[in-house]
């Protein structure tokens, strides 16, 4: 973590969706999609948010972007509290934060040309028309597209080219932070590495910070400085990428890593059989103690009752596991 003010600091973020039931629509509970997540992203840094579908990683990203309402916690951008700011100020702050979604087909308006798609944020920001065309040309070149692509429609492009358009649009207003929500998951293998390389090159050239939301841990390992592993709305483990991949401490992190099939038959078949059973429990009805207790192969006597806190692992990372880290005991 950088010593200076981080670009983004998220403290104890909560996103609870109310559950209503019955004839009167009275509140019967809440889905705790994000339940106390903290993280920091320094300038030029890539932090990955990983976990299975339903763990709350995309909801956390959406809350940072203001696409869903945070119900608790603080989001500080360059030290300024976004949630406490007025609507005008919020909009200004969020101009520095852009997003790249998974599916470039649905992210682009099929009735706009590529040039119009990329210019849209510039129009909204009130940039003069003459300046827009020059900026669009600049952005096309930056993401490896040709000037001639500006007049084409999204359906005339390949999946990889469309994702480049989405990236160009995200860069239009010169943001400092880009939230990448599964940016390469929908792409073919040979295109995936092109886009990963583009994201790394743009980061080096423009000093961008990324919050990289993904489930593909081999890509995450490749591009991230730090990794936050989420489980059922909470952080199970977080720390520098090497610490997490070389010394996973939480049994869930271990299970996630063990589940990745290695692209090497000898190594893959030599691995012990995969042990993690069952699915993610419903976030509307999470276990009282450790969220992972229902699937954990190592659960101890206290795990069902006590909710562990993040504790140092001795490898520069922190994990929330009562069995492996005595200091994770709450209190």
């Amino acid at each position: 973590m950088s010593a200076a003010t981080p670009l983004l600091r998220v403290e104890e973020l909560r996103v609870h969706f109310p559950l209503t039931g019955g004839f009167t629509g009275r509140r019967t509970g809440a889905v705790k999609a994000v339940d106390g997540v903290s993280l920091e992203i320094g300038p030029g840094e890539t932090v990955a948010l990983v976990g299975e579908s339903g763990c709350g990683k995309s909801t956390a990203g959406n809350a940072i972007l203001g696409l869903v309402r945070a119900t608790g916690g603080r989001i500080l951008f360059e030290g300024e509290d976004i949630l406490g700011a007025g609507p005008e100020r919020q909009r200004a702050l969020r101009r520095d934060m852009q997003v790249i979604f998974q599916d470039p087909v649905s992210a682009l308006n099929p009735k706009l040309t590529v040039g119009q798609c990329i210019a849209e944020p510039l129009v909204i920001a009130g940039r003069p028309k003459a300046a827009r065309a020059a900026r669009v040309a600049e952005l096309l070149e930056l993401v490896g597209l040709l000037p001639g692509h500006a007049g084409r429609y999204p359906n005339e492009l390949s999946g990889g080219q469309r994702q480049r358009v989405v990236i160009a649009r995200a860069l239009a207003l010169e943001p400092k932070l880009i939230i990448c929500d599964e940016p390469v998951s929908a792409l073919d293998v040979s295109i995936r590495s092109q886009i990963v390389n583009l994201l790394m090159r743009l980061q080096a050239e423009l000093g961008l910070s990324y919050l990289f939301i993904a489930h593909d841990l081999s890509v995450v390992r490749h591009i991230s400085d730090r990794v936050v592993v989420m489980y059922l709305g909470t952080v199970a483990e977080e720390g520098p990428t090497d610490a997490l991949f070389d010394h996973p401490t939480h049994p869930y992190t271990e299970a996630l890593l063990a589940a990745i099939p290695l692209p090497d038959p000898a190594a893959q078949r030599a691995k012990p059989p995969f042990a993690l059973e069952g699915d993610l429990p419903s976030p509307a009805n999470p276990p009282a103690g450790c969220p992972f207790v229902t699937r954990c192969p190592e659960r101890g006597p206290d795990c069902a009752a006590l909710r562990p806190v993040l504790a140092d692992t001795g490898h520069g990372s922190r994990a929330a596991c009562l069995v492996r880290l005595p200091a994770a005991r709450p209190g």
Binding site: D188, S190, S193, N197, R201, L217, V219, R221, H222, L257
Partner: peptide, 22 residues
């Protein structure tokens, strides 16, 4: 095979890629 990022070895380097698209 060479485009796939691995779980060990160097990180943060440019990945091998196949030019163009299918």
């Amino acid at each position: 095979l060479s485009t796939i990022p691995r779980l060990s070895g160097a990180r943060k380097e440019l990945l091998r890629s196949i030019e163009g698209s299918v």
